[in-house]
Structure formats: structure tokens, C-alpha cells
Amino acid sequence: MSSTQVSGAHGGATRRDFLYVAAGAFGAVGAAAAVWPFIHQMNPSADVLALSSTEIDLSQIPEGMGITAVWRGKPVFVRHRSAKEIEEAQAVALADLPDPEPDAKRVQKPQWLIMVGVCTHLGCVPLGQQGDFGGWFCPCHGSHYDTSGRIRRGPAPKNLEVPPYTFIEENRIRIG
């Protein structure tokens, strides 16, 4: 609301201006508050939030094999690593890594590698046991990941993300 349209010729200019500012400010606050529900409705709804954990039974996965589970609509790679893979992952010098991270920080038990199967470049799903480092390879734009899921070559900036998970039993994890 423009207060310049009305001249203050009648003397009560200060009080009048105060009124305009007060009404305008009140209206602006109200309008801003009214916008929030229309934005917040796009955030995850209560039923989506309630489903934000997934349980996985590891006992069925033999060594050297992996499965792809679903957590929050995204693929999660669960790999039972062989001794060779663990060894390779642990042997890499941190200086060789674009996103330096020791293997020990990416796993809770060395034989179980659990990570979100979404390329950190632009969100494609990498292919397992391919690429130049024996880990994963993203076919979209050619990112190579190693046996710890760390980016080694290609456009992706970061290692594959490790989701929050806990071992609720010896062979059972809950993601989320």
C-alpha cells in the first residue's frame, strides 16, 4: 500500500502514516503466515515419515554377494564383502581419493558394506562389480567407485552415501 498517494495536508500526517504502516505490516505478516501451509504441504506427509525405516535380514546373503533393498524409495546396496574386497578397500592410500575417507569409517562390520545406491553426481543407480576399481560404475556419466563405494574417477564429487543404520541383531539391521 502506498502512502504517498495521499497527502498529509490535514495535519494528522504522523498518525495517519503510522496507521498505514501498521496496517501494511500486519497485512504482510498475515500474508506471509498464510503462505506457510501451502509450502509445508509439499514436505513429506505423516505416512511417508512413518515409513522412514527399513529392516533387512543379512543371514541370507552369502559372502561375495549383495542385495539391493529399498529405503525411502531409494535403492540401498547391502554387500557381503569378501576378504579380498575388504583388503583392497583398506589398502588404498587416502591421498589417492578425491573424497578422502578411510574404509573403517564407512562400515560398522568390515564384511558388511551398506550404502545408498545413488550416484553422487546426478542420481543414477551405479552398476555393481564393474568399473576400473572392482566396485561400482555409474553408466550415466562414467563415475568409478571402489570396493568401499568411494569415488575414484569420473565426475561424481563424493563417495556413495552411507545411510544411518544399526545392527538390531547379529544378522539384522535397521536402516533409518
Binding site: 501451509p37 501451502f38 509445508h40 504441504q41 514436505n43 506427509s45 505423516a46 505416512d47 511417508v48
Partner: peptide, 13 residues
């Protein structure tokens, strides 16, 4: 009903 129960402010809208 999903709108009324689960969506944020869905009941209001």
C-alpha cells in the same frame, strides 16, 4: 482421507 490425515495442513487446505 490421506489429505485430511497425513498431508501437512492438508485438512486446512
Amino acid at each position: 482421507e490421506h489429505i485430511m490425515r497425513n498431508v501437512n495442513y492438508g485438512w486446512l487446505i
